[in-house]
Design a protein around this nucleic acid. Structure first.
Lengths: 140, 140
DNA sequence: TCGGCTATGTATAACAG
DNA sequence: TCTGTTATACATAGCCG
């Protein structure tokens, strides 16, 4: 279309490239809107120009999130796992830390100490005596 | 285009709608590919037909996740917060729990007790004595 | 229902200001 | 560089088999 046929390959002249981008962006956004209206389709179109500028079209009556959820379900491809995995591993890490402290606390309170061996009991006693001394010094 | 002009509104005849969808889908996918090649654009296009069938085009040299990250950064719109917020609040909750245990542990070890008032010290001392008794009983 | 055809409406490459 | 124009290539609506 236009005054001459062009090959579909990167337009080397940056000015032409920019102009073509702008026109085709308008075109594709229009097509996107049209197909959703004509055919009851749901669609998400996100375009970034080489310059970084962004344009989007999301079909009405839906949201990008809806579409991504559906994409997720339909394709089975997971989108936010990278993010989720980080958070999940952080949670696991804290959970372990938590459990360890929980156990130490119970021991210091004299609970669940049946499983401790003699050496561990001695260490614990020492810690308790030390703490007690500190507290008594302070209190007086 | 075609033998007659059509209005951009829902095509009522479901057969025509389906045919038009199929043709236009091909068209828009082609346009999507072309603009990325011609203009160095990055693009994500996801279409769901009314039937539920999905089609997508993601520009080469990128991934949908990249595009969504960029969308997030550029638009400021948060996409996965609903999902993430749950995890984040879980992390916050555990962090608090963690901190509290951390403090309690330090107190039991006689550390950082300057900030405690008399009553708190007494409670602490009691706990320590109780723990110590338990441990000594056990050790013997 | 479907794949292909073609007359016609659109999009756009090149150009002009 | 940007906006508008125009000749042309392209996309596609309605058909046909």
């Amino acid at each position: 279309m236009g005054r001459g046929k062009i090959e579909i390959k990167r337009i080397e002249n940056s000015n032409n490239r920019q102009v073509t981008y702008s026109k085709r962006k308008t075109g594709i956004l229009k097509k996107a809107r049209e197909i959703t209206v004509l055919c009851d389709a749901q669609l998400s179109l996100i375009i970034f120009a080489a310059s970084g500028k962004m344009h989007e079209y999301i079909s009405p009556s839906t949201t990008l999130i809806d579409i991504l959820e559906r994409y997720h379900k339909t394709s089975g491809k997971k989108l936010w796992d990278a993010k989720h995995e980080d958070l999940n591993s952080e949670i696991d890490r804290m959970k372990k830390e938590n459990d360890n402290m929980q156990i130490e606390l119970r021991h210091l309170k004299g609970e669940d100490i049946n499983s401790l061996n003699y050496k561990e009991l001695m260490t614990l006693e020492e810690a308790l005596e030390c703490g007690l001394t500190g507290v008594r010094d302070k209190r007086v």
